[in-house]
Design a protein around this nucleic acid. Structure first.
Length: 437
RNA sequence: CGGGGAGUAGCGCAGCCUGGUAGCGCAUCUGGUUUGGGACCAGAGGGUCGAAGGUUCAAAUCCUUUCUCCCCGACCA
C-alpha cells in the first residue's frame, strides 16, 4: 500500500474525549472514529487489525471442531419472550419495532436464536455433539460505555454454542473450549488467566472468565505464578482449574492457598467468558433430542464468548510505549513500513519501488511511505501505528547500497544491503507464520 | 440512573468572572528555502462560539430550557 493512496489520518494530539491509552492510540493512529457514545466506525487501519484478530479466533474455533454459521443482528422478540429473557434483559437490550409494529431487537447474544436453529434440524443423539459459532456484531445498550472499543455498546463478538447429550459430554465440550481459549489468547500474544466466574445474566452453573494481563486493566488479579507458563498443547484442564486465580474482591489473603512468594498480582482485562448452562434454554425452547432408548431429553448446552473488538483495545493496552502501538507481528496491520527518506532523490525512489514491488509479490503487507514530509514525521507515524519493521531508504546510505532496518518491538537498528534487507524481512515473515501452526 | 466536568476552525486550547461582534498552537492550501527522528520563512483559507428562547443599543460572555460528549459508581465480551 502506498501511503499517499491510503486513508490513514494520524493525529499528534488525541481528542480530549479519550482517556485511556489504547483509546487515545486508536484515535491518534486513525484506527477508529467515534460515531456516538460507545459506537465506532472502523477506519482502514483498525479494520485490518480487527480482521487479523478475527481470523485467528476463527482458525482456533475451527481447529477445535466448532462450525461457523452467521446469525442475524436483528432478532424477533418472540423467542426471547419464550425463553423468559425479554423481560429479564432489561434496558440493556435495544428494542425496535418494524413497520408492522412487531417487536424486534438488536441481538445482545444468541442463545435463543441458535437453539431455534438447532432444534429445527436435530432430534437424535446420533447427531450430537454439535458446536456452532459465529462472529457477529452485538449491541448492548450499556449504561455507561467507556474506554473506547473496550466497552462499546456495539461490539464484535465470537460466540459459540455447544450441544451435547449429557453432562459428561457437555463438560468435555466445555473443557475443549477452555483449551481452545487458552490457545487462542496465547496465539494473540496475550497471557490468559482463567478465573472461576459468576455467570451473570446468561445463567448457568459452571463458568470461567478469561482475563489478559495488562497494566492498565480494569480488575486486579491475584494468581498462581505457574499460570504464566501454560503450555496449551499439554495443559491438563483439571489441573489448570486447580491453580489459584481470583479477582481482588474475591481474594482473601487468609484463605489463599498460594504461598506469598508464588502469588502474583497484576491488572487484567476480561476478554472471554465460557458458560455451561445445561438445559436452561433447551427446555424453554423445546430443543429435545431422542436418546438410544427412545426417550426425549432436553439437550445440554454451553456458550462461549470472545470480545473480538474489545481485544483490539486490550492488546494495545498490553503492547504500547510512549511512541505508540507495538503490534505483535501476527496482528500488525502492515508487516513492514518502507520509508523513503527523500522522495525527490532518484535513487531512493528507484530502490524503494523495487523493494516495494518485491515485498508485494511475496504477499508481505507493506506500507510504502511515499509522502513528501520530513523523515521524522514518517518515523513517528510508523512508530505510532506500530508496524513491526521499518526499512529506511535514504540518500546517505543508498550511495553504498545500504538500507537501515529497525524493529519496533525491540528497537534494534542495523544496516543491510538492499538484497539482504529483502531477505531479512521475508525470513522474519516466515519465522512468525510458521510459529503459529 | 446518582455525583462531577466539558461543548469556541479538522485536533488541542485561550477568551466568559468584569457584555462592545473571536484568537493562539498544530493541521490544511500557495510560493520559496530545506531534508537521516514530528523543519523554516512569507502569505492564504477555514468558526451561524452545541441548539432554542430570553435580558440588552449590543451576547461566545448574563439568565432559562434543551441536546451531546467525557470522568467516577452500579452492569458487562
Amino acid at each position: 500500500m502506498r501511503y499517499k493512496k491510503y486513508f490513514l489520518p494520524t493525529l499528534k494530539d488525541a481528542p480530549s474525549e479519550a482517556e485511556i491509552i489504547s483509546h487515545k492510540l486508536m484515535i491518534r493512529s486513525g484506527m477508529v472514529k467515534q460515531s456516538s457514545a460507545g459506537i465506532y466506525s472502523w477506519l482502514p487501519l483498525g479494520f485490518r487489525v480487527l480482521k487479523k484478530i478475527e481470523k485467528i479466533v476463527r482458525e482456533e474455533q475451527v481447529k477445535s471442531g466448532a462450525i461457523e454459521i452467521l446469525m442475524p443482528t436483528i432478532q424477533s422478540a418472540d423467542i426471547w419472550i419464550k425463553s423468559g429473557r425479554y423481560d429479564d434483559y432489561g434496558k440493556e437490550m435495544l428494542r425496535i419495532k418494524d413497520r408492522a409494529g412487531r417487536d424486534m431487537l438488536y441481538g445482545p447474544t444468541n442463545e435463543e436464536l441458535v437453539t431455534e436453529i438447532f432444534k429445527s434440524y436435530i432430534s437424535s443423539y446420533k447427531d450430537l455433539p454439535k458446536n456452532l459459532f459465529h462472529i457477529q456484531w452485538k449491541f448492548r445498550d450499556e449504561i455507561r460505555p467507556r474506554f473506547g472499543v473496550m466497552r462499546g455498546k456495539e461490539f464484535l463478538m465470537k460466540d459459540n454454542y455447544s450441544f451435547d447429550l449429557n453432562f459428561d459430554a457437555a463438560k468435555e465440550s466445555y473443557n475443549n473450549m477452555f483449551r481452545c481459549y487458552l490457545r487462542t489468547f496465547l496465539r494473540l500474544g496475550l497471557t490468559p488467566i482463567a478465573l472461576k466466574a459468576e455467570s451473570g445474566a446468561i445463567g448457568g452453573n459452571l463458568s470461567h472468565e478469561f482475563q489478559i494481563l495488562a497494566q492498565t486493566g480494569e480488575s486486579t488479579l491475584y494468581y498462581d505464578k505457574k499460570l504464566e507458563n501454560i503450555d496449551p498443547s499439554t495443559a491438563d484442564i483439571e489441573q489448570l482449574q486447580k491453580y489459584y486465580a481470583a479477582v481482588d474482591d474475591e481474594h482473601d489473603p487468609k484463605t489463599c492457598p498460594v504461598e506469598k512468594s508464588q502469588l502474583k498480582i497484576s491488572k487484567g482485562i476480561e476478554v472471554g467468558h465460557i458458560f455451561y448452562f445445561g438445559t436452561k434454554y433447551s427446555e424453554k425452547l423445546n430443543a429435545f433430542v431422542q436418546t438410544k432408548s427412545g426417550s426425549k431429553i432436553p439437550v445440554e448446552m454451553g456458550s462461549y464468548g470472545i470480545g473480538v473488538s474489545r481485544l483490539v483495545g486490550a492488546i494495545i493496552e498490553a503492547y504500547h510505549d510512549d511512541k505508540g502501538i507495538k503490534w505483535p507481528k501476527q496482528l500488525a496491520p502492515f508487516f513492514v513500513s518502507l520509508i523513503n527518506v527523500n522522495i525527490n532523490d532518484e535513487k531512493c525512489n528507484q530502490v524503494s519501488e523495487e523493494i516495494y514491488n518485491n515485498l508485494n509479490h511475496t504477499n508481505i503487507d507493506v506500507l510504502y511511505d511515499d509522502r513528501d514530509v520530513s523523515l521524522g514525521v514518517k518515523l513517528s507515524d510508523s512508530d505510532l501505528i506500530g508496524i513491526p519493521f521499518k526499512i529506511i531508504i535514504g540518500p546517505r546510505d543508498i550511495k553504498t547500497n545500504q538500507v537501515q532496518i529497525e524493529e519496533r518491538l525491540t528497537g534494534k537498528k542495523f544496516m543491510l544491503s538492499i538484497n539482504d534487507a529483502y531477505n531479512y524481512i521475508t525470513n522474519e515473515m516466515k519465522v512468525f507464520s510458521n510459529s503459529d501452526n
